[in-house]
Amino acid sequence: MLNINEKRMKIKLRDTTDTIKVSKEVFDIDFKPALIHQVITSYIHNSRQGTKAQKNYKTIRGGGKKPWKQKGTGRARAGSIRSPLWRGGCITFAVTHKIVYKKINRKMYKLAMCAIISELLRQKRLIVLNEIKLNVINTNFIKSKMEELNIKFSKTLIITETCEKKIELSSRNISNVESIKVGSVNPIILINTNKVLITLAALRKLEEKFKI
């Protein structure tokens, strides 16, 4: 439910003559470079898988029994078959699996996302469409729609409310065009695109998701 006292602003739909009202709390936020940089670096850092752990002398299994007696065999002394000198043994200076999580609280993340979305809107890079309806997989339809909006050669992101398989398959073979559902929107994908096509239903869901 929308708050009656909430500050609203108007956005024009590009495929109709209608205008819609949206919240200024999401679509009219000042650009905040320091906050956005902090959120993006944290997002990238937390997306890393980390280094694959290696086995040191404490963590490797086996090798508890001395392979042969200390003296009298003519061979070098050996205390374990899991020695770092042996094949299949442990690693002398093993790399341990470390995950250092950089925490960003939810309010900071939402504010950064709203700042990015607002800047896209101010620069006229956020294009709102009433709907993108495809009955069959049709790449030429996506191409003609981009030509109609004069974004044919721009790196374009299409955002829909749910996973639209027909739109995804239709845009897959077009260079620099990607289609995602609104739940997959993140700061990296937004700042790395020139134009964002978003349906009205997805815009409403985005507004509800990032409203502070």
Rank of each mutant, 00 (worst) to 15 (best):
K209Q: 06
A202R: 05
T162R: 10
E168M: 15
L157F: 03
A94H: 00
I104R: 05
G63W: 07
E147S: 03
L206W: 02
P67T: 09
S171K: 03
C90Q: 08
E161R: 15
G79M: 00
K145T: 14
K107L: 05
I167C: 03
Q49Y: 04
R8F: 07
K143Q: 07
D15W: 02
S23I: 06
N176T: 09
G64W: 11
K103L: 08
N105W: 12
Q38F: 03
K209H: 04
E164Q: 08
Q49R: 07
K181V: 05
E147D: 08
V95P: 04
N140Q: 09
G50S: 13
T51S: 08
V26K: 01
M9D: 12
A115N: 02
G50I: 15
K66S: 12
I159F: 10
N150T: 02
S47F: 14
K143G: 05
I137N: 04
T59P: 11
N186F: 01
A112L: 02
N5I: 01
R204W: 14
S171E: 00
E208P: 09
L13I: 12
F93N: 08
A53Y: 06
L111V: 12
L13W: 13
L157S: 03
F210M: 10
P33H: 15
C90M: 09
M108Q: 11
V196Q: 04
E6M: 15
S42P: 15
A112Y: 02
I11V: 12
F210H: 12
R82K: 15
Q38K: 12
L206F: 02
N135K: 12
Q70N: 06
R82G: 10
K205P: 07
V196P: 04
L200R: 07
V136H: 15
G62K: 14
Q123W: 01
M108D: 09
E161M: 10
K155Y: 15
V185T: 03
I91S: 09
R82W: 14
I142A: 04
P33A: 10
I99T: 10
V39D: 08
K107M: 10
T41C: 04
L129S: 11
D30S: 09
S42C: 10
I20D: 10
Y43N: 11
L200S: 05
G63M: 13
S170Y: 08
A78L: 15
K124F: 07
N138W: 01
F210P: 11
A76V: 03
K66A: 10
K110T: 06
T193K: 11
Q54R: 04
H37S: 06
S118C: 01
N105S: 12
N186Q: 01
E208A: 14
T51P: 01
R82Y: 13
K145W: 02
F141C: 00
R172Q: 13
